[in-house]
Simulated scan of single mutants.
Amino acid sequence: MVKDKKLYDLLGVSPSADENEIKKGYRKAALKYHPDKPTGDTEKFKEISEAFDILSDSNKRQVYDDYGLDAARGNAPAGNPFENAGGHPFGGAGGGHGGFRSGGFTNADAFNIFSQMGGFGMGGDDGFGFGSHGGFGGGSQFHSTGGSPFGGFGGGMPGGFGGGGQAPRRREPDTVTMQLPVSLEDLFNGSLKKMKLNRKGVTGSKESKVLEIQLRPGWKAGTKINFANEGDYQEEAGARQTIQFVLEEKPHATFKRDGNNLKMDLHLSFKESLCGFSREVTTIDGRRIPLNRSQPVQPNTSTTYPGLGMPISKSPGQRGDLEIVFKVDYPISLTADQKQIIQQYF
């Protein structure tokens, strides 16, 4: 019987949950409480990420089940057979995913885990996109450098099992924000963008790194994509900066986005607005639709085509609407004969 069920409850799984159930539980909870979401809660997000960090590692999970959360964090309880053993019970106290990190679980750790698991673009057969545990395969666009996916938590284990005093806590690495201009077509179809970074390495030398950013159909301006541990190396943090791209939508010549809907103006001559017209409109995905009117059209009225707008990222297969707004181009002057005809017939 497990000593404490708190971490299992955070992920919404039972103590007998297998690896796949733990991954799915983390995915659901992390997406709900991520700070960028309307339901976001930074502290809850950190707790969920720490729960996954412990329960997804068989060694940490065993210590948690047997001795509780403090032990899993590296604080050996009284009576722990590993206490004063002079080292880590599982073969070293490094900063990798299988080690017990010193200094406590930080917000940076939480975001690093979320990024390593695919961020908001979580995919794959189980909806998550990992490979085998610790490998983070399956097409994830996030690539950590160095031996630890959390970056900079290597070294010894002061304050851990059998360690000495608590080590000074390193500050979290900075987050560098960059605007990423993308076209409306990129956001409609999804697109792979490659960005080349010139960054400072561990030794201070300059190096290059290409980041691949997979845009998902339906993403909106303001969407943030984080690449943890990919910027300049910061010695005081013992890790690289987090690079954060913020999507910026380029103006489109025809369409204007309104949430999941698209709007376009259709300009009519004064004659067309009175006598009717026959036009053909091309949608953002290249579909041609006929548009006819035989009666007068009032300026700024509109017609709506359901399902011809932008993809809805949270509802695959669904799209918003296309709204066509009629704009009447009135003449700026009239001849005497034109005025007479208007006065005669109107």
Rank of each mutant, 00 (worst) to 15 (best):
G222V: 06
R101D: 12
T254N: 06
K196W: 04
K256W: 01
L247K: 08
Q340V: 09
L187A: 01
G138S: 15
A17F: 01
G147E: 06
Q116W: 04
L215P: 07
L211E: 10
E19Y: 12
R73K: 06
S315D: 06
F255M: 09
S115Y: 02
Q116L: 12
A239E: 03
T145A: 02
G204P: 05
A239G: 06
M117R: 14
S205Q: 12
R279F: 04
N300D: 15
T39I: 00
S208L: 12
G163D: 08
T145Q: 04
P38T: 05
Y305T: 13
G91R: 03
K339W: 09
H88A: 14
M178C: 01
D57L: 00
F277E: 06
G155M: 00
K24E: 03
A51F: 00
G159L: 08
G103Y: 08
R199C: 14
T242V: 12
G163W: 09
K220C: 11
E172T: 12
R73I: 01
L31H: 13
S49L: 04
D65R: 02
P81Q: 10
S269H: 05
T335P: 04
P306G: 10
I284H: 12
G137R: 03
V297D: 01
E235C: 04
P173W: 10
T106H: 10
G286L: 08
T283I: 10
P168A: 09
M1P: 14
D285Y: 06
P168V: 07
F90N: 15
R61P: 05
G159T: 03
G124I: 06
L266V: 12
A72G: 05
N107V: 11
F105N: 04
G139D: 09
F130P: 15
K314Y: 11
L192W: 02
W219A: 13
Q344Y: 09
S140F: 00
E47P: 02
G104E: 05
F326M: 14
F52D: 01
G134D: 11
G286C: 02
E185R: 08
A336W: 09
I312Y: 00
N75I: 10
S16N: 07
K263L: 14
I284N: 07
L11G: 06
G151L: 08
S208Y: 13
H88S: 14
K28Y: 04
P149S: 02
D285T: 11
T175L: 02
K200S: 11
H267K: 12
K256S: 12
D337E: 11
G119I: 11
A221L: 11
N292P: 00
Q344T: 15
I332Q: 13
G94R: 04
K200G: 10
D337K: 10
G127M: 10
Q344G: 10
E207N: 13
